[in-house]
């Protein structure tokens, strides 16, 4: 084992965790501000200038609130559930290429934790495990609303994983690789365009499925407060509730990063190579470009949440099984035919 490599990766992982948590914290602030803007209100403005300290106040509140574990619950699983949900939310960040590599006096510092040659499949494995956190948490609460929320979450995740997988298959046919870095690099340079141009329908399917996998509105059926109180996290309090809510924002951040990497050129922008920047500057610029795209998609997630009403459960299932899956299969066929006959 190479110690320099180990040190590099450890530093990178710590930075990515810190950034993910920081962005997730400020997404809560962003969400409330955007909601306020869309509803013609002011939003949080008490803590600090423009309410900028609001996430810290919320964090302190979550940590110091009374911890309640229901008597009838399964105590071990009740604690494990939110932990698994948080862990899987953070695990996906390992395969995302965050930018071009730095060069510190001859030492190459890459900005991707693991360039797996099964990168995209790893993403799917982690996403499919993510549902366990909700299911375990909901079941362990021993509350019928929590159980219903957990069941909804599980069936929703299974249903939309299929269409998501098929839309990725079409992407794979075009890029000839499962590695995220190769997919990102395949969208830059001469004659290459962003995948969203080559796969508009695939992108649309992937985007809708990402909303459903993140349990975000208009697909937030697992926690729809008007019918299920709080869904799977009804019984949770204090920081365990905080973990569930926080992990949702991390999921949103990571899926924005993945959408940006898969369909919008990742850390590239048209003409980045013609600027001829020194390597370290180019690395910083590439990170900035990726984060600009990520922030746009986080904004998009919030924009949709505060604009569209929630689906009914049968509508959700109809959309998943009867529209998205056939559409994604047709998309794969068309892409395959296009590659066979025109390339």
């Amino acid at each position: 084992m190479d110690w320099a490599l180990l040190l590099d990766k450890t530093i990178l992982i710590v930075i990515i965790f810190a950034v993910s948590l920081g962005i997730a914290a400020y997404s809560t602030y962003g969400e409330r501000k955007i909601a306020a803007f869309l509803q013609d209100r002011l939003g949080p403005d008490r803590a600090g200038p423009f309410g900028l300290l609001q996430p810290i106040a919320d964090g302190v509140k979550m940590f110091t609130k009374e911890e309640i574990i229901p008597n009838a619950s399964d105590k071990f699983l009740f604690i494990v559930g939110p932990c698994i949900f948080m862990m899987t939310a953070l695990m996906t960040s390992a395969i995302i290429p965050w930018g071009k590599s730095f060069n510190f006096g001859g030492h190459e510092f890459g900005l991707q934790v693991a360039d797996l040659n099964v990168g995209l499949l790893y993403l799917f494995a982690v996403v499919s495990i993510g549902g366990y956190g909700i299911m375990i948490g909901g079941w362990a609460s021993n509350n019928k609303f929590a159980l219903l929320g957990a069941l909804r979450a599980a069936s929703q995740m299974i249903s939309y994983e299929l269409a998501m997988g098929m839309s990725i298959v079409a992407l794979l046919l075009i890029n000839n690789s499962l590695s995220l870095r190769e997919i990102v690099d395949g969208q830059a340079g001469d004659g290459n365009v962003w995948n969203v141009v080559r796969q508009p329908i695939g992108f649309l399917i992937f985007l809708i499925c990402a909303f459903a996998e993140c349990n975000r509105a208009p697909f937030d059926l697992p926690e729809s407060e008007s019918e299920l109180i709080g869904g799977y996290h009804t019984e949770f309090s204090s920081m365990k509730l905080g973990l569930f809510l926080f992990a949702e924002y991390i999921n949103m951040f990571i899926s924005s990063a993945i959408i940006a990497s898969l369909y919008f050129g990742g850390y590239h922008f048209p003409g980045i190579d013609s600027l001829d920047l020194p390597q370290n500057i180019a690395a910083i610029v590439s990170i900035a470009v990726l984060f600009a795209k990520i922030l746009f998609f986080i904004f998009f997630f919030m924009w949709v949440r505060w604009t569209l009403p929630r689906f009914r459960y049968d509508q959700l299932m109809n959309l998943g099984w009867k529209i998205l899956i056939p559409l994604s299969i047709v998309n794969v066929l068309v892409t395959g035919a296009w590659i066979t006959f025109f390339k």
């Binding site: 499949l121 799917f124 494995a125 499919s128 495990i129 549902g131 366990y132 299911m135 079941w139 069941l151 599980a154 069936s155 995740m157 299974i158 994983e161």
Partner: peptide, 15 residues
Amino acid sequence: HLIVYAGAIMVLFLF
């Protein structure tokens, strides 16, 4: 193996 067994099939079991 993880996607199919740990992800999909075991979710159904848990269900």
